[in-house]
Design a protein around this nucleic acid. Sequence first.
DNA 1: ACCTTGCTTGACGTTCGCGTAAGCCAAACG
DNA 2: CGTTTGGCTTACGCGAACGTCAAGCAAGGT
Lengths: 133, 133
Amino acid sequence: MSDDTTMTIRQMCDTYDVTPRTLRFYEAKELLFPIRQGTKRLFTRRDRARLKLILRGKRFGFSLEEIRQLLDLYDVGDQQATQLAKTYELAKHRLDDMVHQREELDEAIDDLKKQLEWGAKRLEELHAKSAAE
Amino acid sequence: MSDDTTMTIRQMCDTYDVTPRTLRFYEAKELLFPIRQGTKRLFTRRDRARLKLILRGKRFGFSLEEIRQLLDLYDVGDQQATQLAKTYELAKHRLDDMVHQREELDEAIDDLKKQLEWGAKRLEELHAKSAAE
DNA sequence: ACCTTGCTTGACGTTCGCGTAAGCCAAACG
DNA sequence: CGTTTGGCTTACGCGAACGTCAAGCAAGGT
């Protein structure tokens, strides 16, 4: 059931915790390309992979437009050389961004850890005080 | 000049590459608390530290409201023990989130790297072809 | 035959994060 | 003295990313 079958909009919503509106919106923005059975949308394995990347991208603060361009990267069919080259450059910059973002995230994690240690000490102190009374 | 002095709005803008509007907006949202000299704003060392965290938070897709709560974390003055404990728990969860986010980021970076290698090969092929004609 | 359930397409509404004037001080400069 | 410079408030505007009706079709149950 998991691989080559298509999913209805509701199955998608339940699986990925998004609303129908969101999926239709993503289709309108050409982020997803569900096939049509009559009037209804059927989401393929490809759509699901793309949706996962979309949701991940959002968590890192990318706009939908930026995500769309990144998705095209993972989906180079028969592009022109010039187009492919542009896409390639774009991706390299994105990669730099992400590596830089990773460094920042490490810092942020360290900062927060220190705050936590500090907080733990304060809590201990307060606890010792209240026990002494 | 760097530590205990205050900065005007323009100095802040130049230093952190934001607009005046943005700084006033952050003040309105209670993310910053510049002191007033007459009608003008003077940004302290504390404001600058907070602004750095704000900008960093934005890069990770946090909303300003989420960032405000995180900032309060770094700003525990003389809180009650219960309040401090709550803050402490909140911080631990945030830390978990960030660690998880880092794992995801690592994955994303790996994915993108692979895509880039693939793209480089394709570009080479295309180049070889056009040279052969 | 009817009604519910699930999906559809508009189309307007909303929140967030600012941008962008408009108009008003006040210090500083020529 | 006028005027540029820099900051202020008030307020309307805007794009992004959906939410929220409204109205309609289509398949399936009773």
